[in-house]
């Protein structure tokens, strides 16, 4: 397992070194970005509305009971932008996009397409990994911003519509506005950048390591998702600690 992590770090470093080639591979980056956005945006928005709604539903009545109903908006806003949006969007990206990356690259590996690239002196890291890592690094933070917005609206709808909470739209967003700082939003977005790099590198690595036919592809996909989820949660704690010091 340590060897795998070591190789993932090396793959990440090699991809980082290839960053100056981004402009050259811009078409592939945009294609990947489109695919990732297309696959995940609608799902992300739906997910976010319900997450925001659930937080409001769970916390609202308790806060009303204790006379601090005016802070429901702030609670939903902070929970989403600092923690839930980056983590949930990354989980979504690992499940939908990361698995697709591992399957695609794994299939290319099994069917010798990557060997064919190498015989043409085309570096698979530049051709396959770089566009996916860059696209993911841009796409996931954007999903997080969308998730924040839709999650806040979801919370507002529940706070307004639920008779046990019954907070007006304006009061909800006033509370959100007073409690949520731009640094809170930035902290979530920065965390999602870390998660995005992790998911993309892990998924590409698993794809590149695939062997043994369709069964091997399935195994790579599973491993890509599991490793991504574990690393997201570990790095969530580490990134939160670091960002608490920095921001």
């Amino acid at each position: 397992m340590f060897r795998k992590f070591g190789e993932m770090i090396l793959l990440g470093l090699e991809t980082f070194r290839a960053l100056p080639l981004c402009w050259r591979h811009r078409k592939k980056i945009l294609e990947q970005f489109y695919v990732m956005g297309n696959e995940s945006l609608l799902m992300a928005c739906i997910l976010a509305i319900f997450i925001g709604g659930v937080i409001a539903l769970q916390s609202g009545p308790v806060m009303v009971e204790r006379g601090i109903a005016s802070t429901v908006g702030g609670l939903v806003g902070l929970s989403l932008c600092k923690e839930l949006s980056p983590v949930m969007m990354s989980v979504l990206a690992a499940g939908r996009v990361g698995s697709a990356i591992a399957a695609e690259i794994g299939s290319m590996r099994v069917y010798q397409e990557i060997d064919a690239l190498r015989t043409m002196s085309i570096n698979p890291i530049h051709y396959l990994v770089l566009p996916r890592v860059v696209a993911m690094t841009v796409a996931v933070p954007m999903l997080v911003i969308f998730a924040n917005l839709f999650g806040w609206v979801g919370g507002a709808l529940v706070s307004m519509g639920n008779p046990d909470i019954n907070i007006p739209w304006r009061a909800y967003f006033n509370s959100l506005n007073s409690l949520v700082d731009i640094r809170d939003i930035l902290s979530g977005v920065l965390k999602s950048v870390v998660f995005a790099v992790l998911i993309a590198v892990v998924s590409c690595y698993m794809g590149l390591q695939t062997s043994g036919g369709p069964r091997g592809i399935g195994k790579s996909v599973t491993q890509a998702v599991v490793y991504s989820l574990v690393l997201i949660l570990i790095f969530d704690y580490l990134a939160t600690r670091i960002l608490m010091i920095i921001l």
């Binding site: 290319m108 015989t119 043409m120």
Partner: peptide, 29 residues
């Protein structure tokens, strides 16, 4: 690179068209 290899399965990139596959070396370099 003056050594070319024709793989057993053809190993054509399934996401590219035939034309893009054939011109890939020239395009990428």
């Amino acid at each position: 690179t003056r050594v070319a290899m024709v793989f057993q399965s053809g190993a054509l990139l399934s996401s590219l068209t035939v034309g893009e596959n054939v011109g890939l070396f020239l395009e990428e370099h």
